[in-house]
Design a protein around this nucleic acid. Structure first.
Lengths: 133, 133
DNA sequence: CATAAAGCTTACGTTGACGTAAACGTTTTA
DNA sequence: TAAAACGTTTACGTCAACGTAAGCTTTATG
């Protein structure tokens, strides 16, 4: 059976750059600060699909206005691995804080959207009025 | 009749600082780059409720990850004043772009919230399991 | 009346998130 | 086989958004 359009398990830095529309500098920067850890074939970076996912999460965070440190925290929330009860509790706390912040953002966005819809309507009205002169 | 709890029409920089939990430096910075234009009583800044509103909008923008320049644009959308047809059209275009971006953010947030809810549930489960040992 | 609190200006410092340039080694491709 | 395309490291530069410190004036308060 031919291997039809399977998502590859390996990516070059250029693959990622093109897919996510960022520069290679950006991708390497995320590695510098320890957000991604590609393996190497010789000197060349080789990204796994897990690396790719992390990059996607980082960029989603950026669209939401998160700092890279914020994103680091959130990404860490996906793989606790910490069986320690105290750590689990503090993790839950952190998660709840993030959720609160996001709910505030939802509120802000819906208000801003409302404002912008009104502005757009006003503009369109102004255009109509203008046309009748 | 006594003047009961009327919202004042004038604010000091400290009033604003306390209300919005920012530093005076921040408020002055927004003035430096022309986002707010308080009047003066002598040398002292006097903020109108319009100034206060602009500050509120700026901070809402910040929570959404907007740059101050983005916020400047959006705030300008509230008071077009430009009767020029070309300007109105480009304003509508800008508004629609902002709205698209915000809809993308809505999507991102709901996905992130979904992820975090799952993480939180996983944590709570881990705690339960831990308790039974 | 002195001293604390609030205001002001000027100006240099800092942090995050990359940009950009130099200088070099592989690997495709015309 | 030459040049384009892709990869690497090192390191300094940049821009936004304030922080921070110095030094001075005005206003409120014990």
């Amino acid at each position: 059976m031919p291997n039809l359009a399977t998502t590859p398990a390996e990516f070059s830095i250029t693959d990622l750059r093109k897919e996510f529309d960022v520069t290679t500098r950006t991708v390497r920067h995320y590695e510098e600060i320890g957000l991604i850890n590609p393996s190497r074939r010789g000197q060349t970076r080789v990204y796994s699909s897990a690396d790719r996912t992390r990059l996607r999460l980082i960029l989603r965070g950026k669209r939401l206005g998160l700092s890279l440190e914020d994103s680091r925290q959130i990404i860490d929330m996906y793989e606790p691995g910490k069986t320690n009860i105290e750590q689990l509790n503090s993790l839950i706390h952190a998660i709840r804080q993030q959720r609160e912040k996001l709910n505030q953002q939802l509120d802000d966005i819906s208000n801003l959207l409302k404002d912008l819809k009104k502005s757009e309507a006003d503009c369109i009205n102004a255009l109509k009025t203008n046309r009748q002169n």
